[in-house]
Nucleic acid binder design. Structure first.
Lengths: 335, 335
DNA sequence: TCCTTTACAGAAACCGGTTTTTATAGTATA
DNA sequence: TATACTATAAAAACCGGTTTCTGTAAAGGA
């Protein structure tokens, strides 16, 4: 049977409170007593009942993950899962555990905030590209520390790739290769990242005084291969299309390239394509994708550190933004 | 401030125990009283403190995930993460939540079993391909219900693809296309799935009385693209190599194919290749991969159902195996 | 009509910790 | 030496539920 603090106390012939204080390094205990108790507790591999402790202290070492699955991709989404993986590693190595914040627990419906209240969760990492959940606002406005990625909210700390710079870097890259006409396959406007990438694209085009052909700014409705393919077909219909294309993401870029290939247009010989992400698979695509790499390791780590700070030191600023630099990975989809 | 059961009791001028009984549908309460209390609790959005409840009842709606990250891939591993995703969806829709079982919590080292003890976790899903963790055995031998995938243990319930059949299906597929020489890129022997796929391969070859050229059973050390590439180079060195190759996984198959392509050997014109998995990217590879699809949805769901059963009904058999059927997806890497 | 059940609600104990309060030494101060 | 202070350990209260025990009024049976 599992030992309680009372067992320890009895076996050592001391008071339960003494045991508690000894194990928690609380004051009011002699060094000798503390060591005796610690040694014994170690020997019998005593572990405190977390529920009892949390009931009293209202503290918990849990960090919530709000992982929206609106698109049905969830953990299979490579970009998010790799951020989450790094996040998880960091917080776990700091003694926290992660819990998915869900909206039905033990057959009762509850909001994200209520879930956190119930579990004494003081900090959450919001990982979603679709900020349309009604529960989200309630959570953000509460006293729960929140960090997010890929979306902005007022009063919320965001860790995100420098997407504007991503757009700029893509244009710069093409410009330096001598291209003067550059097309853009954009993402849906509900995606912040997509909007910013387009913004960066436009900014840098203007900087270089390059004309933007609006018919060559084509919007892909989702981040999918299929919508990339469609955008490729649409692109080919444009008269005298550009020879350089900046695509909002690698996944879309792959579909886009496939459409070109299926229509006899060669990449990179006829058209150069650059994507964004650097998914594990991007380097194995044919052609291997030139892309603007998102640093998922750094995003996950930064988010984790920030969140733990916010939870530890109440005074840490609860809003703001950290932009994670991106870099170009040149491969074979560009000349 | 969050309401407690005492607040409710006071406001309704009844005893706390009465409130508890009413909300839990426990006997000994009149219908009228029960409804009055429930209605009021609903109105003020009362939610019980989970820690207090768990402290007393020792029940929890947590399911542990032992997610081994020895290879540093963790959640980014597509096959596992997609199983996990389905598992998660199912258990969550049944009112459970998932918790990652970790070995340091709040700065204390503890074994998987101790973690579960502490958190009152009664069931875990073990997702790992490398069963070398010393903590694992302790957990499996304990009273915690365990379900796993992709590894076998005595006294443990396993949900796994029918890998032997996968090997057989691959050989059959080639045989029916007229191939009589079939090579196999095998996985490392520590992987159960890899061993079984090879077993199926050999079994079916024997069935057809086809000779197995042992020099064409090449072992890839890991499931990586890179090792696939290496095995491709090695394969090409074999004199008069076969025109049909069954590769242990899609990832390895992609590397394998790349090696052939880089050496001027065309797939499928010169060599037909079939993999196993059907990763999200497999259909986008060039050539699109013919593969034996693992049904991750069914694996995840089956594991979830089984585990919940085991937790609910103690008598449910704790060991056994469910083999999930696989099916061939024919694409462009085979003639 | 009187006694025994039964139904229901309240009181109290309990889960296993933590924290506050109290008691008792031993030590310092006057 | 008497008193005040400190350090330490025990006792008790508490966190917020659940469960058991108790008491009482109404219903049922003789």
């Amino acid at each position: 049977m599992k030992k309680t603090i009372y067992d320890i106390a009895e076996e050592l012939e001391v008071a339960p409170s003494t045991v508690s204080k000894a194990l928690n390094d609380a004051p009011g205990i002699s060094k000798k007593m503390r060591e005796r108790i610690k040694k014994y507790a170690d020997k019998v591999r005593y572990f405190p009942n977390a529920n009892a402790a949390k009931l009293k202290t209202k503290k918990s070492f849990s960090i919530g993950i709000v992982y929206s699955e609106n698109l049905g991709i969830g953990l299979e989404h490579n970009f998010f899962s790799s951020i989450l993986q790094k996040f998880k590693e960091y917080v776990e190595s700091n003694g926290y555990e992660i819990t998915f914040v869900i909206s039905n627990l033990g057959n009762r419906k509850l909001s994200y905030y209520e879930f956190c209240q119930q579990k004494n969760i003081k900090g959450v990492f919001i990982v979603t590209s679709v900020p349309d959940n009604p529960y989200l606002k309630e959570l953000i406005d509460s006293d729960v520390a929140c960090v997010t990625t890929d979306i902005y909210f007022d009063n919320l700390y965001t860790v995100i790739s420098d997407n504007i710079n991503a757009g700029q870097k893509a244009v710069k890259f093409f410009y330096e290769k001598g291209f003067r006409h550059i097309a853009h396959i954009a993402g849906h406007h509900y995606s912040l990242a997509a909007r910013e990438r387009q913004e960066g694209f436009r900014k840098q085009m203007n900087e270089y005084n390059l004309p933007i052909r609006e018919n060559e700014v084509i919007q892909a409705n989702t981040y999918s291969f299929e919508d990339g393919y469609k955008s490729g077909e649409l692109f080919l219909k444009q008269p005298n299309y550009s020879k350089a294309v900046f695509v909002v993401s690698d996944q879309v870029a792959m579909g886009f390239i496939k459409a070109l290939q299926d229509n006899g247009v060669k990449v990179p010989e006829d058209v150069s394509v650059i994507g964004v992400d650097d998914l594990p698979f991007s380097k194995h695509y044919c052609p291997a994708l030139t892309t603007i790499q998102q640093d998922t390791t750094k995003i996950g780590l930064t988010a984790a550190k920030k969140l733990i700070d916010m939870m530890k030191y109440k005074e840490a600023n609860k809003k703001g933004i950290t932009k994670i630099p991106v870099k170009i990975i040149e491969r074979d989809s560009t000349i």
